[in-house]
């Protein structure tokens, strides 16, 4: 017997009022996929460039210091920090803690604040102090 197509499946994104916990959950998946694709390709390219010698490393640094390359690096830094912060949130929730509405909401906001502030601090240090 087939499923009655007039009955709705589980309600999805479109019908809920958005909250920070939803945004963080989606960001966790989005940043995870970005890191899986762009992050791993970049990590592999970086290692291959060092292994390949001076010419290949020069190609890498030229791409990495190009405005577009910097945009990708800063974006991936934020993605890594957001995924790490929301990952810690998931580990806390996995042990059964942090499900009270206010705690949950605060933790969700905290992951976004932490990832943005740390990205800003890290790249301000790299571009203004180290460069």
């Amino acid at each position: 017997m087939a499923r009655n197509i007039n009955r709705p499946l589980s309600p999805h994104l479109t019908i809920w009022k958005w909250g920070p916990h939803m945004l963080v959950s989606i960001l966790h998946r989005g940043t995870g996929m970005a890191l899986s694709i762009a992050g791993l390709v970049l990590l592999t390219w970086w290692l291959l460039a060092i292994a390949g010698g001076a010419a290949s490393y020069k190609t890498f640094t030229e791409a990495a210091t190009h405005p577009l390359g910097l945009f990708v690096l800063i974006g991936l830094t934020w993605a890594f920090l957001q995924h790490t912060a929301s990952g810690i949130r998931h580990l806390i929730m996995d042990v059964g803690a942090g499900f009270e509405l206010n705690t949950n909401k605060t933790m969700a906001y905290a992951t976004m604040a932490a990832s943005l502030l740390l990205t800003l601090a890290l790249w301000a240090y790299i571009l203004l102090v180290r460069a």
């Binding site: 791993l40 390709v41 990590l43 592999t44 290692l47 291959l48 060092i50 292994a51």
Partner: peptide, 16 residues
């Protein structure tokens, strides 16, 4: 595949 490539690159840096 890509993971093996990344580890190969690291090994080449370290042992090459």
């Amino acid at each position: 595949g890509v993971g093996a490539l990344a580890l190969f690159a690291l090994a080449r840096i370290a042992f090459g």
